[in-house]
Design a protein around this nucleic acid. Sequence first.
DNA 1: ATGGTTGCCTCGCAA
Length: 255
Amino acid sequence: MKVATWNVNSVKVRLPLLLDWLDAAKPDVVCLQEIKCLAADFPLMELRGHGYRAEIVGQKSYNGVALLSKEPARDVITALPGDGGDSQARYLEASFGDIRIATIYLPNGNPVDSDKYRYKLAWLERLRAHAVTLLHQERPFVLAGDYNVIPEPEDVYDPVAWREDALFRTETRRAYRGLVNLGLTDAFRAFHAEPHRYSFWDYQAGRWQRDEGLRIDHLLLSPQAADRLVAADIDKTPRDKDKASDHTPVWCELN
DNA sequence: ATGGTTGCCTCGCAA
């Protein structure tokens, strides 16, 4: 089963690129983030024409996540547990075959002296607590999405410039390690040790042309999923097209 | 070099 994650930065604007990429890459499940629309406005018919169903958690203008799949989703949950008052569309989880898959859009958190940053850290802690619950089930799962976390200095083009940013500062990376160190596997790093491999390049200042990016889109696997991991990579091809998202897909294959 | 870009039912905000 091929599982991918892609922050599309508006599913409406990105639909032609998304359909082209689905036809070429043929993933079984795709975790989308920043669809930036209500569920009612999601392009279901067009995706159906290319063989994909969708589960959607939408929101007007901002955020929004979806799970695209060839086979129907089962046992869908539409929010990250732990805060009933959180109305932002950032989490969706379902089962496909015997694998549990979540699409995650973690808060950006800038600026760091704001409620946005406190919300980011609280969200990371809720995700860690939920991962503990999932791990107790001892089943394969994949938590995939835009984590808005740069795990290590080698995952950013200029670690000094990003030192105090909400995506990289010590407190953020410590919280992220608290999640990974429960026993999860970063699918990309299981196959690629080389530094400076990125999944996001800012639209501004020619970052893509200079290959000055960030690796912030991750697939974190439970031990039972990691045992079945046979391949993973970043697919840079959609980032080079006209009307590209600022993120590019990351994927893994489980046998 | 405090620049620059994209998407949102906008006239600023989020990324």
